[in-house]
């Protein structure tokens, strides 16, 4: 049996809102370690990998592995019914055909209970090996979101160039071009404002902004985004949770 209680419903709300436009049907795999999701978008370009570690929950028990096949659009509708500050408990039997969500208002005795029918979702789990990336950058997630949104007004593609002392985001379009250059900086008072670059090799990679627009929906999950890039391989965009992460693997674009 699964019983996982979030101190605040807002965390799961944010997670679902962050991924529901990238993937619709996915298995939430619950184990003693927490909840994982892995799913690839329909165009096979973007992969979502989520770990909500058991330490995120104020109470968590899961005696044996339980898979919850969820339609995220329906899940999002139900989860919006709860208040952000409510306790949220997920409950499922061992071989469930539904999952129960219990919202508890902390300021009153109101308890709201919803159940979502589960689906049989057949998706293959990919083993993604840890790899050495040419460059790892860490920057404020909100800045990355703004840069991508600004540059998406010009182009469908975002070029990212990384050297040891700068990160350059570029977009070239029919109506004009744009670029934003960032320099590494350490902010001691506000570490979440820091920008760091670890470089093994200079990077010049291009990505579809339509996918990045979905990735940056994770912005509210973490003050910082970690971007790991190697030339000509999928990049990893990561929002760290208090325990766990939301990762997106995005295949690059190559020049013809």
């Amino acid at each position: 049996m699964l019983e996982g209680k979030f101190e605040e419903a807002s965390l799961l709300k944010k997670v679902v809102e962050s991924i529901k436009d990238s993937v619709q049907l996915c298995n939430f795999v619950c184990s003693e370690h927490g909840i994982t999701v892995q799913a690839v978008d329909d165009s096979r370009v973007l992969l979502v990998s989520l770990l909500i570690g058991n330490e995120v929950f104020s109470d968590y028990r899961c005696d044996r592995n339980i898979t919850l096949g969820v339609d995220l659009k329906s899940f999002a509708k139900i989860i919006r019914c709860g208040g952000n500050d409510d306790y949220l408990t997920l409950i499922a039997e061992d071989s469930p055909d539904s999952v129960t969500l219990v919202f508890e208002d902390k300021n009153s005795d109101r308890i709201s209970e919803y159940s979502l029918k589960l689906m049989e979702i057949d998706n293959e789990f990919l083993k993604i090996d840890d790899m050495d990336y040419d460059s790892v950058i860490k920057m404020p997630s909100i800045d990355f979101q703004k840069i991508c949104r600004d540059l998406s007004t010009l182009s469908e593609s975002l070029q990212i160039l990384i050297t040891k002392d700068s990160i350059k985001f570029m977009a070239e379009g029919e109506t004009g071009n744009g670029s934003v250059i960032l320099k590494p900086r350490t902010d001691i008072d506000k570490p979440e404002q820091s920008i760091t670059v670890k470089l093994n090799n200079a990077v010049n990679s291009t990505f579809g902004l339509k996918y990045i627009a979905d990735i940056v929906k994770g912005t509210s999950l973490s003050n910082q985004i970690v971007i790991k890039i190697s030339n000509r391989t999928p990049a990893l965009f990561e929002y760290k949770l208090q325990s766990g992460y939301l990762r997106f693997y995005l295949a690059p674009k190559f020049e013809d």
């Binding site: 690839v40 096979r44 370009v45 992969l47 999928p234 693997y249 295949a251 674009k253 020049e255």
Partner: peptide, 14 residues
């Protein structure tokens, strides 16, 4: 001109 790659070229099973 850029061409979008698929994850399948990089991850088996994708």
């Amino acid at each position: 001109n850029f061409r979008q790659q698929s994850l399948a070229s990089f991850f088996s099973g994708a």
